[in-house]
Amino acid sequence: MPKLLLSLLAPLFALALPVQAAVETEIALAPGGYRWLEEGAVNGPLYMVISIEKQRVHVYSGDRLIGIASVSTGMKGHRTPTGDYPILQKRQWHRSNLYSNAPMPFMQRLTWDGIALHAGHNPGHPASHGCIRLPYAFARQLFALTKIGTPVEVTQARLNAALKIDPLVLGDPGSTVVSFDAGKGPAMTLPPPDAQEDGAPMLEIDPAIFTPRLRR
């Protein structure tokens, strides 16, 4: 059975293969609460999944859940749009261009028309004008971890991580996926393309897997 080596390097957008998070994700948080499950340097590619329904963000490093926080998304009439976004701009001290010069500390822009992550009031329910408000201390630590281009996915409900695989790879019958840190568990057998889930953050496949020595 052929095997494909994955290098978890950068965001790319295609089909999705769900991956189980290594840490239990149902951790109770009060409004404005957060929890870091790992401290220090991030070893895997960083990305975030934000659930409007659950008013929560999960921060992942590769397939590991490293941070959880409550959020406040857009209120009725200013709903936060779902979708996949790279961080476009970062400013530690920023003020809103749209809403009375309101402070937006640790701002991380997702769209050029006004949607961003930033520290702000977090009542445990949607209350913003579309931005995603984070607990202040969490926003500060997250700001230090992210870079321009870090992927952020806003979903209606889902918070679990996912690994996205290019359709060309899925078209190789019977292939299995082996990541470079796969010693923690067995390889995954790829399901058929029609079983894939759309709309999850994806990690890029290293082009080196298509070299002749790996494609036997």
Rank of each mutant, 00 (worst) to 15 (best):
203 L>F: 10
213 R>T: 05
40 G>M: 08
191 P>Y: 00
119 A>E: 06
50 I>C: 10
43 N>E: 15
95 R>L: 02
118 H>P: 00
142 L>I: 02
14 A>P: 05
102 A>M: 11
151 P>K: 05
31 P>F: 12
109 R>L: 10
49 V>Y: 01
72 S>M: 03
168 L>C: 08
92 Q>S: 14
52 I>S: 06
71 V>I: 10
53 E>D: 04
170 L>F: 15
101 N>G: 13
123 P>Y: 07
36 W>I: 07
6 L>F: 08
77 G>H: 06
104 M>Y: 14
155 T>E: 00
215 R>Y: 13
64 R>P: 00
146 T>H: 03
68 I>Q: 04
169 V>T: 05
123 P>F: 10
109 R>T: 12
70 S>Y: 09
85 Y>S: 04
96 S>L: 11
143 F>L: 02
138 F>P: 05
115 I>V: 02
139 A>C: 07
95 R>W: 13
188 M>G: 01
146 T>Q: 04
16 A>E: 07
107 M>C: 10
194 D>V: 07
206 D>M: 08
85 Y>F: 15
38 E>Y: 10
68 I>H: 01
145 L>V: 11
168 L>Q: 14
36 W>A: 03
95 R>V: 09
50 I>R: 08
25 T>D: 02
26 E>K: 02
140 R>I: 00
83 G>A: 07
76 K>L: 09
128 S>M: 11
102 A>R: 01
41 A>Y: 03
133 R>T: 02
32 G>W: 07
209 I>Y: 15
30 A>M: 13
96 S>V: 11
60 Y>A: 02
142 L>C: 09
216 R>V: 08
190 L>M: 03
122 N>M: 06
209 I>D: 08
89 Q>D: 13
174 G>T: 09
57 V>P: 03
21 A>R: 07
142 L>Q: 09
165 I>S: 01
39 E>Q: 13
115 I>T: 05
156 Q>H: 08
185 G>A: 14
156 Q>W: 15
61 S>N: 14
212 P>G: 05
175 S>V: 05
96 S>N: 12
196 Q>T: 14
70 S>T: 14
177 V>S: 06
15 L>N: 13
106 F>K: 03
180 F>E: 03
15 L>T: 06
160 N>I: 06
141 Q>Y: 05
158 R>D: 10
198 D>G: 04
42 V>G: 10
85 Y>Q: 04
191 P>W: 04
170 L>R: 05
199 G>S: 11
47 Y>I: 01
200 A>S: 07
182 A>C: 13
161 A>P: 02
137 A>C: 02
115 I>L: 03
214 L>R: 12
187 A>S: 12
14 A>K: 00
7 S>I: 11
172 D>I: 12
49 V>H: 00
30 A>C: 06
65 L>D: 00
58 H>A: 03
123 P>E: 07
73 T>L: 09
128 S>T: 12
205 I>N: 07
26 E>Y: 12
97 N>D: 12
83 G>C: 13
61 S>W: 08
176 T>C: 03
9 L>C: 06
205 I>R: 08
108 Q>W: 01
96 S>M: 12
118 H>C: 05
2 P>V: 06
